[in-house]
Structures are given as C-alpha cells and as structure tokens.
Design a protein around this nucleic acid. Structure first.
Length: 283
DNA sequence: CAACGGACCTGCCTGC
DNA sequence: TGCAGGCAGGTCCGTT
C-alpha cells in the first residue's frame, strides 16, 4: 500500500507529536509480521530524537539506535486516544505518555518493526538502498549509468529500491506516462536525455502526491485517520480501457513482474518516445 | 551478476 | 447466498 508519499505523509503527521518525547512503554499484540517484531526491552525511558524516512522505511531515531518501521502493503500508523478500542490487526503499540498512543495496524503483515543499534544505516535492509528521489543525489544521469546493459523493463528498473527508493507501482506507472516512456522498454535502451525526463517525472509525481496527502485506493490513512487525495490525479493507474487524459486513446494494461502496468499506447509508443508532459522543476 | 517466480498474509471484489 | 478465484499500494529470497 504505502509508497513514498504515503510514508512521508505518515511521517509528517507523526513527527511533531512524538519528537522529543520519551517512550513510556510498548506492547506487541502480534509478534509475527514479515519478520518477528524486535523492540529492545530497555527502550522505554529513551527519547525519540527524530522521526526520519528512508525510502519507504520510517526510522524512529533514539540516541543509541533506531526503530525501523515498514508499512508493507497494508500498514498504517495512527495516533489515537489511549481509550480507543484496539482494532483488528492493531499489532504494535507505542506509548509516549499523555492521552495518545501510536498504533501500527497491518492486516497483511507484510510490514516490519525492527531495531537497529547505533547511528547510520547499517541494517542490511537499509545498507544498500539507492538515492532518495526528492534529494539532489538523484538524477537522470545516475539512472542512465545504472541502466547500462540492463534488459529489465524500465518500470521494474525504477521500482528497484537499489536503483532509487520509494517508487512503487502507482507512481512508476504515472511517472512513465508523464515521461512518454512505454513501461516495457528495456532500461538499457533508454537514452540519457529521456532518463532526465523520467527522473523529473518521478520527482513531480511524488511531490504532487505528498502535497495532497498521498493516494488512498482503499485503506491508506494518515496518523489522524484521514485519506489522501492523489487518487483523483492519477492519469493511467487503474484506468484500463478508459481514455487517455492527453490523447483519448484507450489505456492499455499488461502484467510486468507480477504487477499491473498501465500505459497509453499512443503517448508511450513501443518504438521511440512520446511527448513529455512533466514541467521542469527548478530547485 | 542479472532475471524471474514464488513466498509471505488478509480482505475485497467478481463471477459462476 | 455461497464459494472459488483473482487481485491488491512491497520486497526478500531462492533458483536458473
């Protein structure tokens, strides 16, 4: 479920409420998520210095380590009053004192809660992640260089967290539409200049989505329990057989790497490239 | 290495 | 109405 904009929306909602607060206690109601939940017993009493995001991971930074939280496909964090009855699939509870609690709800249990001692990003899940798409380290040039000789479809390439983090199925589809690139094209055969467009499109789509609180397809909610509104801005995702917003042709869909993939057959041609419809962002 | 498919798990929707 | 089957916002891991 959550891609980068949804995780960032969660972070922004939660950060001002818990940064500088000491964890009072925690509770684990379902110890088995993707991996066994791991929170040090001695963590209560320590202060959350910062709530950070790395890709789709949320990092609760303490002075001696970080609690790594991933929301998987179906997870959400909520900031609720402590008397609020627990919902089905509320697996982990973080108590910072006061009248509120942070609860992790994750029906499919693809998420995780893990402890990483020390500073930095030494945990194996974090150690080899690619650049942040909204930071300056991310560029079309970088994509181009990593794509040399790779035959993998460009959509799977940009969804690979070792290439760039945070681009999930929805935004990969949307970004390639804006860049005029057919998702099935081999990454290694995209020219440098077109990768600049792809990078720009990724930034724009993520940025625009964060601005409206992310995309709620069915169940994403922010820490206050509210949905995001980017769904109405989706141009191709989940629009099979509907008219392209740009040219009116029917949106087509195929399966790539087991994931539904949507594109306009005319704006994202199978040979060559289509028009670029993302504006230039100047930072 | 790179590429591919399976695996993890629950819930919702469709069609018979 | 009931049930089987397919699909869902992620990503690791094993096998070729």
């Amino acid at each position: 479920m959550p891609e980068l904009p949804e995780v960032e929306t969660t972070r922004r909602g939660l950060a001002p409420l818990i940064e500088g607060q000491a964890l009072r206690q925690f509770a684990v109601h379902q110890p088995m998520l993707r991996w066994p939940v791991s929170i040090p017993n001695e963590l209560p009493g320590h202060v959350v210095q910062r709530l950070r995001r790395r890709g789709k991971y949320l990092l609760f930074d303490f002075e001696h380590g970080s609690l790594i939280v991933h929301l998987g496909m179906s997870g959400s964090l909520r900031f609720v009053e402590r008397e609020t009855p627990r919902l089905l699939h509320d697996h982990v509870e973080l108590d910072f004192g006061g009248v509120h609690l942070v609860r992790l709800n994750d029906p499919r249990r693809f998420g995780c809660v893990l402890w990483q001692p020390g500073g930095g990003e030494t945990h194996p899940l974090l150690a080899s992640l690619g650049p942040e798409p909204l930071e300056n380290e991310f560029s079309g040039q970088g994509l181009f260089e990593k794509a040399r000789a790779r035959k993998v479809a460009v959509k799977l390439f940009v969804m690979n967290s070792h290439i760039v983090v945070g681009v999930g199925n929805i935004y990969a589809n949307e970004a390639l539409f804006l860049a005029g690139v057919r998702p099935t094209r081999a990454a290694g055969r995209i020219p440098r200049g077109r990768f600049e467009d792809v990078a720009r499109a990724i930034r724009m789509v993520l940025d625009d989505s964060i601005r409206v609180g992310g995309t709620t397809l069915r169940d994403f909610i922010n820490p206050e329990g509210k949905p995001g509104y980017f769904r109405q801005s989706l141009r191709v995702y989940d629009r099979a057989d509907q008219p392209c917003v740009r040219c009116g042709a029917g949106i087509e869909s195929v399966v790539l790497g087991g994931r539904s993939t949507y594109y306009c057959p005319s704006c994202q041609p199978s040979r060559g490239f289509g028009p670029v419809s993302c504006k230039v962002l100047i930072d």
